[in-house]
Design a protein around this nucleic acid. Structure first.
Lengths: 117, 117
DNA sequence: CTCTGATACAACCATTTGATTGTACGATAA
DNA sequence: TTATCGTACAATCAAATGGTTGTATCAGAG
């Protein structure tokens, strides 16, 4: 079991990396199978260097890894990171549910909440 | 049942909004209970206007809504949007699983895959 | 060895982002 | 009415982002 605390910076990088259509598309492709950077670049209407940078952003966020394969670099989507991101969103949803529980508690007591300073 | 197609732009905005620690903190607070913009601003070491802008980014991504309350604007976290984001990440995980299924298929056949052009 | 393909990386540029300050305005308290 | 509080919004600015081209390196094909 990997606990792996995610720092705020880590989380920033993960969501930033996901906040771009091209990068999401790259991630999709590299989750389905390993692809070289140049193979990826063929799919987009931008320079090879631009695609390279997008891959670097994903790599920095650890959403993909790169592995040398001859003269190519095979890019592979990292499922673990996806799951960590999922857990982050789960956390938000739990907060929302906590609110509901609190409201239910108030209704049950019929008592106004004291100011929590 | 809300289908609500999310455009690439929508998704960009959602993840971009989540890619900042201050905004995630604002989202957490507004999921737990409604808070005015000035109440939010008290928690951060930056100008009121800066916090206002962060709220605007979250609002633009529809992760929060603002409702007038006297002279204040109460900010409320939008759970539906969180769940939509969760579904987006689920989609990525499904792609990964599809890859595994494909590999399993190959193993079962013991047959090299033809180029899929 | 030589040529080519795949990658790495630096320099550069336009646009966006994240923050600031200053001004204006509606709602409330005195 | 007159302050004052909470907000909205414009102007400004430094830094980060997303793209480009150019140069260098490294592995494989002839």
């Amino acid at each position: 079991m990997v606990v792996s605390e995610l720092s705020d910076q880590d989380v920033n990088r993960i969501f930033r990396a996901l906040a771009d259509s091209t990068r999401r598309d790259i991630l999709r492709r590299t989750l389905v199978n390993d692809v070289s950077v140049s193979q990826l670049a063929d799919n987009y209407d931008m320079s090879f260097a631009a695609v390279q940078k997008h891959v670097a952003v994903l790599e920095d966020a650890r959403l993909v890894t790169k592995e040398p394969r001859g003269r190519e670099r095979m890019v592979r989507g990292n499922r673990d990171r996806i799951r960590q991101a999922q857990r982050l969103l789960d956390h938000f949803d739990e907060l929302w549910r906590a609110r509901i529980d609190r409201l239910d508690g108030l209704l049950a007591e019929g008592d106004p909440a004291p100011s929590d300073t």
